[in-house]
C-alpha cells in the first residue's frame, strides 16, 4: 500500500488539486472561470497552471477575444490518469484494504 507521503506531489497542493478537480468536472475552462472558482490570485494561478502544463497534466490554449488575451485550459489524458490515481491513493489511505 502506498503511504500518504507518496501521493503525487504535483496534485497534493491545495490550488493545483482544485484546478485539476475543476478541469476533470468541466471539459475546458477559461482562466477567469478557474480564478473565480478557486479564489486564487492572478500570479499564483498562472504559476500553478504553468507547473501543471509542464507536467503535461493540462493543455493551455492562448487566443485573443476582442483584442483581449483569452486563456483556455483543458485536462490531458495524463492529467486525468494522475487525478484518478491520486483519488485512489487517498481512498486507500482512508480505508486501507486488509
Amino acid at each position: 500500500m502506498r503511504k500518504f507521503g507518496d501521493l503525487d506531489p504535483l496534485l497534493h497542493s491545495q490550488l493545483r488539486l482544485a484546478i485539476v478537480s475543476l478541469l476533470v468536472s468541466v471539459k475546458e475552462a477559461d482562466f477567469s472561470y478557474i480564478q473565480e472558482a478557486t479564489n486564487a490570485t492572478n500570479g499564483n494561478l498562472s504559476v500553478q497552471l504553468t507547473k501543471l502544463k509542464d507536467a503535461e497534466y493540462i493543455d493551455i490554449k492562448k487566443s485573443f477575444e476582442n483584442n483581449y488575451p483569452k486563456t483556455t485550459c483543458k485536462i490531458t489524458k495524463k492529467g486525468l490518469k494522475a487525478f484518478e490515481r491520486y483519488v485512489d491513493d487517498i481512498r486507500n489511505y482512508l480505508s486501507p484494504k486488509k
Binding site: 497534493h12 497542493s13 491545495q14 472558482a37 486564487a40 499564483n44 487517498i90
Partner: peptide, 24 residues
C-alpha cells in the same frame, strides 16, 4: 486558495468543492 500542502481530508473536501462549483 494558495499553494499549500494539505491533509487527506482537505484533499477530498477540495475535490468535492470543485465538483460542486462546476455544477453551479
Amino acid at each position: 486558495m494558495k499553494d499549500q500542502i494539505i491533509n487527506e481530508h482537505e484533499s477530498l473536501a477540495i475535490i468535492q468543492q470543485m465538483i460542486d462549483k462546476s455544477k453551479e
